[in-house]
Design a protein around this nucleic acid. Structure first.
Lengths: 344, 344
DNA sequence: CTGAAAGCGCTTACAG
DNA sequence: CTGAAAGCGCTTACAG
């Protein structure tokens, strides 16, 4: 916009008052009595000049940016995580708006240093950060936390006491496996979503193990294969499972993307889900319901995670720290076709 | 962060120079000769204090926010558009970073006024805006454009000369239909992605019409059905097409989501694609390749659209207005299974 | 009830 | 080559 932008001085002049009064009226400062006529004159002048206070000046004087940032680490799991981005972002922005905050989106590309986001915090571009996909070797993160910069993780960083929002992976996996057990399966295999270096992967595996043990069944490492985020890893994992002496009758696959590949492997062997093998996935990506067969899967509430992370962060920013800063959201089993429950 | 944040004054004091010098050194202002020793002292002092210039102060004095915003209108087409969000955002942020800009994400929910985003511009929260899903009845948009606020549309607004970035819908549709023609089909139906009130929908229909006419075939409105973004509308549209006296042998479906529903209708009738009916979709959503059959479709370059929009916007912000401000990106036909090309 | 003044933390002419 | 001063556009004690 050209240079003719009105300032509070212009409004004051037009309304015949001081800039103080303009500020007081426009910000609706409470416990300040200003005559209704004056108030009206200011409002009218502002409207007439199409005046909006300058955000930069406001930020400087208030010491607040009214902005939070979502830092989005990209990596080998990009496609996997992209599936959650729209929901997560929508949840975060909705919560942010509710409290009067804006949301800055900052992806960290694989070719950037892991801590490329710290300048956002140190340079006061934002009042707080949501970090999605934290890396445990990120010392900048720990430093910032020590300096009391408001931070919330989406995901988990074992060992650090940084506030975080995540799904209860173990519970979700247990629910999935219990469902297969209830359908009468005894030989249940698993394909993980990712290598065990990923916390979520370990937790989902642990949920699988616990559900088996709880049912008095042995945990057999031979029935576990390791996925790696993508379809191809699922295809290979299922291939390997199919070559087993004692084939599982059901497989819990801790990622829908990986499950897609597993389903393909099944088709390539002339096998059908759920008739020849029951499948339960994890994530409930947007198109899971449209697969053939429609995928029974564990729903991850992306919107809720985004909302929860933003709300927790804003409470921290505003000094209203809750007792519990490790938020775990429940998942929900969505029963469709691939588990075979509808057949019975 | 607590109050102990260092300012340029602290750095100046520690280095034994003035704040001017600190600023000059840290910003690497050219054509200013400062002794290497002084320079070194300043750098060292900044490092020692862990000093980062305050963004708010910088914004105020420079009159620049170094931020662009992506305004994301939500509506009936939400799920449809969400499929593009990760790519679009990544493209926009990558381009933005390259030029030193941040990206603010601002969805407009259905319950907000259509012009809820204008305060971003008028209040100088951002140097420019990308508007995705513009509404033609948005007068605030026209006002802002008249006031020369930097604006780029993702999509099109017929009539207005506002800079915009979009896909060449007509060309994309022509490519799809030509492909079906080349496979020998003569009776080709179409299901649109959305009602004709949407520009993209009209353009894709026009591409279909032109490809037929170009091949010397009549355009028969009886073979056209109207989708409405979602799967269910595709199912119904295909139902209707199947009840036709002279069934088409191929259908161009201008949206992958709608195509999913159409494929389901086919299955429900015991028909198979591509054997009984060839299908070509549009969009190339992330999971299109994993459907059964894998969907032949017109790829929409989400990343390129985001990149192009951000780059165009930044050029406008920086006064480097290109001659052509109506950018149309090419689509690309991705041949997979549903069209039957692999069978021949 | 309203106004003059200080100040937020920088950058940038302008002197020297 | 470096420093003192003004100023970006607000808000907020502080007087009156």
């Amino acid at each position: 916009m050209p240079t003719d932008r009105p300032t509070s001085r212009d409004v004051a002049r037009l309304a015949g008052v001081s800039r103080t009064t303009v500020s007081l009226v426009l910000n609706n400062v409470p416990d300040v009595h200003i005559s209704p006529e004056t108030r009206q004159r200011v409002l009218e002048a502002a409207r007439q000049l199409n005046y909006y206070p300058d955000a930069s000046a406001r930020r400087l004087v208030s010491g607040k940016t009214s902005t939070i940032a979502l830092v989005w680490h990209r990596g080998p799991d990009q496609m996997y995580r992209d599936a959650f981005l729209p929901g997560l972002l929508q949840g975060a922005t909705r919560a942010a708006r509710r409290y009067g905050y804006y949301v800055l989106f900052r992806p960290i590309e694989p070719d950037e240093p892991d801590d490329a986001w710290v300048e956002l915090a140190r340079g006061r571009h934002t009042d707080g950060l949501i970090l999605s996909g934290p890396r445990s070797d990120d010392t900048a993160l720990l430093d910032l936390h020590r300096d009391r910069f408001p931070l919330v993780l989406h995901g988990q960083l074992p060992g650090a006491d940084i506030p975080s929002v995540d799904v209860d992976n173990e519970q979700g996996a247990m629910t999935a496996v219990r469902h297969l057990l209830a359908l009468g399966h005894q030989r249940i295999g698993m394909i993980t979503n990712a290598p065990l270096a990923y916390t979520a992967s370990r937790q989902r595996l642990e949920g699988y193990r616990r559900a088996l043990v709880e049912a008095g069944l042995p945990f057999d490492a031979d029935r576990v294969r390791y996925g790696n985020f993508d379809e191809e890893s699922g295809r290979q994992a299922m291939e390997s499972l199919l070559s087993l002496e004692e084939r599982p009758t059901a497989v819990f696959i801790a990622s829908d993307m990986v499950a897609i590949g597993a389903l393909r492997a099944l088709r390539e062997h002339g096998l059908r889900a759920p008739e020849d093998m029951a499948i339960v996935g994890f994530d409930d990506i947007a198109t899971a319901r449209y697969f053939t067969p429609a995928l029974t899967t564990v729903h991850v509430p992306a919107f809720g995670l985004g909302w929860g992370a933003a709300e927790l962060l804003i409470r921290i920013i505003e000094g209203d720290l809750p007792n519990e800063t490790q938020v775990r959201l429940e998942t929900q089993l969505v029963v469709r076709e691939s588990c075979g429950a509808h057949v019975r």
